[in-house]
Structure formats: C-alpha cells, structure tokens
C-alpha cells in the first residue's frame, strides 16, 4: 500500500482519577481532531475496566486528561509502544489540539489529514458478498489491479490504493449490483439497499465486453500488441499512451468513467502494454482455476 499510516489514537480521559471536561471543550477537541484524521476514544467514569485504553501494535497513542494524581495506566497491547500522556488542565480546545500536534510530532507519527497535501482519500470498492456470484467481471475490467482472488478463489479487493479517486466504473460492470463505493453520492452504489428496479436496470446495461468489441483484456491486448509493434517501429511513447487514452475515452463516452476522473488520470500511470498482457494471462489462468 502506498499509504500505511494508521490514524493516531487520542484518548480523552475523563475516568477515575481525572476531572471531567466542559461539554463545549470536549466537542471542540473531538470534532477538530477527527476532522484532522485522528481517532478519538472518550473514557468516562462509566467505562468498564475491560475497556481501559489498550494500545494496538504500531499505533501511536496520545492520552489527554485533567489528572488529579498520576496519569492512568495504559495497557500495552504489544510492548514498547509509543504512548504520550499530557495533562490538559487549564487549556482550552485550541490549546489542547495544539498539544496533540506537538505530542504527535514527538512520537514521530504521520497523519493522513483530510484535505492535506498528498492525503489519500479512502475511495475504493467494497464487495457485498451477500450478492456477489464470483463472476470475476470486475477483476477483468479493472486496469489497475485493485481486485484479486483470495485463497478460496473468491474475488477480493486487494489494492485499495490503486483505485482511481471518484471513479465508480467497476460498480457499473457488476451484474449483481454487488460493488459499493460508500462515498458515492447515489444509491445503490453508495450502499443503499438494492431494489428490484436496480437489478433489472443492471441486467439491461451495456455489456462491457461488447463495448470494446470483445473481452476488454483481449481487446486491450490486441490494441497494445498493435501499438507495441508500431511502438517499436516508430519508438513513439505518445502513440502507446494515446492508444490507452482512446480505450478510456470510449469507456467515458458510455458513461462508465466520469469525465472529470478521466481528465485527472495520469496517463503515464496506466498499465503498460506488457502489464496488460501479463494481467490478461493471469486472468485466464484464474478463470480456469475458479
């Protein structure tokens, strides 16, 4: 994965041995930290001891409280974790948020901050296995290796980060309406319950394989082979890129890829003709096995 950052865990400790916070301060701190990409756990006197703060492997912890005495014990889930404890008595919400940033820097922990430069927006397909029939059309369709096959030969989402932000094209390919993008605007792709009309509509939609005159991979492979032979003769990388762009434009015209997604695609990041050939071979093998 390109981005391995797990959100830093902040604990608002208002349990035994600590003063409760004012409501507004709690709202301000929790809301701001969540908007910045942190996870926030609130502990109160009602928290049963089984839910005491517990670190998980590799996840930095920042514990905040108005402690009356010694700060609470943190159960170390994995041994030797990064934990910072801060007394926030006398600080207002912005002061507390600033203190968390300092503690995070001290722990050397990264943050995938929403809206931040280079942040990764979590956009990827989610499969509803109550609906999926394992037809593998999504695997065949996706050019970016987002899908794979698990040990039980079932389709799985393997490389979330390869998915093109805001592109829901593969959900349109699924004949069972089994692919969701939870951040999509409309149902049933956003996870809304699937209605009979949705299924009927899906069964009438354009067959993706006919779109490019046959199986998408063999089509792309043929195109890429032609492109490759021209490529080797003409030594023109632009031609190969244009070839791929033409395929994608066709998909966009059919409404499968939003125009703005296509416009943003970095064509140089598209799979090379060799990669397309490799994927086509792999896919044929997987289909034979599944």
């Amino acid at each position: 994965m390109k981005n391995e950052i797990h959100p830093v865990q902040v604990v608002l400790y208002e349990g035994l041995g600590a003063e409760p916070w004012e409501r507004e301060c709690r709202i301000g701190v929790a809301g701001t930290l969540l908007d910045q990409g942190y996870s926030v756990l609130r502990i109160t006197a009602r928290t049963d001891s089984a839910a005491a703060p517990r670190t998980a492997e590799g996840i930095p912890f920042v514990v905040l409280g108005r402690f009356e005495g010694a700060p609470p014990e943190i159960i170390d889930g994995a041994g030797g974790r990064s934990v910072a404890t801060r007394d926030v008595a006398g600080l207002d919400a912005p002061g507390i948020v600033a203190l968390v940033a300092e503690a995070r820097a001290e722990l050397g922990a990264g943050l995938n901050e929403p809206g931040g430069q280079g942040a990764w927006k979590p956009w990827f397909p989610v499969i509803d296995y109550d609906r999926c029939t394992n037809c593998l059309q999504c695997l065949s369709f996706c050019l970016f290796d987002v899908y794979g096959i698990d040990e039980e030969k079932r389709i799985e989402v393997r490389n979330n980060d390869n998915c093109k932000t805001n592109c829901p094209a593969c959900s349109r390919v699924c004949p069972e309406v089994a692919i969701m993008f939870p951040k999509y605007s409309a149902g049933p792709i956003n996870g809304e319950a699937v209605r009979q009309e949705d299924v009927a509509r899906e069964s009438m939609k354009i067959d993706i394989s006919s779109l490019l005159g046959g199986d998408i991979y063999s089509s792309l492979r043929n195109r890429s082979e032609k492109a490759k032979s021209r490529f080797s003769k003409e030594r023109s990388p632009d031609k190969a890129l244009n070839e791929r762009k033409r395929c994608l434009t066709q998909l966009q015209k059919s409404g499968l890829i939003p125009a703005e997604v296509l416009a943003e695609l970095d064509l140089a990041s598209l799979p090379s003709p060799e990669e397309i050939q490799r994927k086509a071979k792999e896919l044929a093998a997987m289909r034979a096995e599944a």
Binding site: S39, L41, T44, V126
Partner: peptide
C-alpha cells in the same frame, strides 16, 4: 457528536471508517 459529548457515556470515534477499513486497522 454534540449529543454524544453531552452524555456521560464513553464512545469511540474514527475520522473515517472507510480509511480504517482500507488499512485493515486492528
């Protein structure tokens, strides 16, 4: 969030469950 913060109940909150899922967060 304000409703949760106004109660005495503990809670756990995530910036983005989709992100947590993508990271297979424990």
């Amino acid at each position: 969030l304000a409703g949760l913060c106004a109660a005495e109940t503990p809670f756990e909150s995530f910036a983005d469950l989709c992100e947590m899922s993508a990271r297979r967060d424990p």
